[in-house]
């Protein structure tokens, strides 16, 4: 009885699926899927070659500081860094006084101790980076309806995040003539900017890095080309997304070495115990 019912149920589901398959196949042949501009022109991120890649990779402190400089001077006007506390900038190699100065240069929300009204005060190391816009509505209103995302986690919120940010920032270009010829409807709209690394090829953010030397790097640092600035800020954003990466990797190496030893011992012990037992 069970088998008869099972047979019928199996026949029903398999049959419906095969019908769906045939139906889909007919549709596939009669109306083949239309190629889209996104499919043909979207590019995967280029490899920037970061110092923190691989199991032994570490952040380059000087690069993170340069990246922070690019963030502060270029991105910070629209993009917040709301998960990051000023105190954690110590990871970048800043000392206490420098962190205090960085924090104090920014206003954070506060309550006036005398009137109780909302006000702002200078940031302290324990504070987090303040929001740029009080809420999403304000952010959308100020940016032509495109809300600039918070960048704290952007390097983990995109596939291959650090390379993605690098490619996006250095990847603005004119829309290829071939694209417009093949897909006249996909022409980059008013207020949008063509970028093959962006999922739908057109994004609202204007190219933020427009010329070499836009940010002045300190003595002994590489030349601030667009490529270099894009790379530096991407590295910085990887750090904001994964500040514990170095601790994670160094712990991991110790753990794996320990486990390898333990496993070899466990194997030898296993072989010993079974030595006289055929199995």
């Amino acid at each position: 009885m069970v088998r008869v019912l099972a047979f019928l149920v199996g026949l029903f589901f398999s049959g419906m699926l095969l019908l769906s398959f045939i139906w889909g196949g007919v549709a596939f042949v009669s109306e083949p899927p239309v190629p889209t501009a996104e499919k043909e022109f979207h590019k995967h991120p280029e490899k920037a070659g970061f110092s923190f890649e691989g199991p032994f990779g570490k952040y380059d402190r000087a690069q993170l500081q340069r990246g922070f400089q690019v963030y502060s001077e270029v991105c910070a006007a629209c993009h917040s860094l709301h998960q990051v506390a000023f105190r954690s900038l110590a990871d970048l190699g800043y000392n206490e006084a420098e962190i205090k100065a960085i924090a104090a240069a920014r206003q954070v929300p506060a309550v006036d101790p005398n009137t109780g009204e909302a006000t702002t005060r200078e940031g302290a190391p324990a504070d987090k980076f303040p929001l740029v816009y009080p809420n999403n509505v304000a952010a959308a209103a100020a940016n032509n309806n495109a809300i600039p995302p918070d960048l704290s986690l952007i390097a983990k919120a995109r596939h291959d995040g650090a390379n993605y940010v690098y490619s996006l920032l250095s990847g603005y270009q004119d829309q290829p003539a071939e694209l417009v010829r093949k897909f006249p409807d996909a022409k980059t709209g008013e207020g949008l900017h063509y970028n093959p690394y962006f999922a739908n090829l057109n994004l609202a953010m204007a190219p933020p890095l427009v010329m070499d030397g836009q940010v002045t790097y300190g003595e002994g640092q590489p030349k601030p080309t667009i490529d270099q600035m894009a790379k530096d800020v991407s590295a910085f954003l990887m750090w904001t997304a994964e500040p514990k990466m170095e601790a994670r990797k160094s712990t991991g190496i110790a753990v794996v070495i320990f486990l390898l030893f333990a496993t070899v011992l466990a194997y030898m012990s296993y072989q010993n115990i079974w030595a006289n037992k055929k199995h």
């Binding site: 596939h159 496993t263 012990s269 296993y270 115990i273």
Partner: peptide, 28 residues
């Protein structure tokens, strides 16, 4: 004893993921 060895292999693989590719199985 045999499970102890199996556990070692399991933990090595888990540690490799946790420490070196913790987000590989998640969605950005």
């Amino acid at each position: 004893a045999k499970d102890g060895f199996g556990l070692g292999v399991f933990l090595i693989l888990l540690a490799l993921m946790v420490f070196f590719a913790p987000n590989a199985l998640g969605h950005p």
